[in-house]
């Protein structure tokens, strides 16, 4: 079971991740929970899911796009972005698009191959919760957010690039 952190502490995980191969038949067994649905299942069976779950979020794999979600964002409290492998950098741009361009204010969670040495940049792209790979030391991971005290470019943490802040 992945340990969940935000940028300051360990936090309880209230969401149940539904695997991508699943169909709506799994819904009833998980009835009443908060469910993170894979994008395709959300698009095909949102209504059935809404009838079973107490809340719905969506997760995307790194090759997927936000196109079909753009007008639904305000109803989603959480979007999780999967890292099939930590070195697949596509989700950094997805998070940036969500936060900056689409003004998404809900939770953006990193799931999958989420490791200590990527956390600082993930935060700067707009992620705010991190489901760590099970072998990661959460206390050590929490230090990663302090690796750098500032950034040259505009980030989700501070949209003002350094050149606009230099005195």
């Amino acid at each position: 079971m992945a340990i969940l952190i935000n940028t300051t502490e360990k936090i309880p995980d209230h969401w149940t991740l539904i695997q991508s191969a699943s169909g709506p038949d799994v819904f009833s067994a998980l009835r009443g929970r908060k469910a993170l649905l894979p994008l395709e299942l959300f698009l095909s069976d949102e209504e059935a899911a809404a009838a079973q779950f107490s809340a719905i979020g969506v997760w995307l794999d790194s090759h997927q796009t936000l196109d079909k979600l753009e007008d639904r964002l305000s109803s989603l409290p959480i979007i999780a972005l999967n890292f099939p492998v930590f070195s697949d950098g596509r989700a950094y741009s997805l998070a940036r698009r969500l936060r900056r361009d689409l003004g998404y204010t809900g939770e953006i969670r990193a799931i999958g191959d989420v490791l200590r040495d990527q956390l600082c940049f993930l935060e700067r792209c707009g992620f705010d919760s991190f489901a760590l790979r099970s072998d990661q030391d959460p206390d050590d991971c929490l230090k990663a957010f302090k690796d750098f005290s500032t950034s040259y470019t505009a980030t989700a943490v501070n949209d003002t690039p350094l050149f606009r802040r230099r005195g």
């Binding site: 993930l122 690039p161 050149f163």
Partner: peptide
């Protein structure tokens, strides 16, 4: 130099293809 600063530690582009 402007490009150097922008690209250094750019959080979005550390894991490009």
């Amino acid at each position: 130099e402007i490009i150097r600063q922008w690209s250094t530690f750019h959080p979005e582009f550390a894991y490009l293809p």
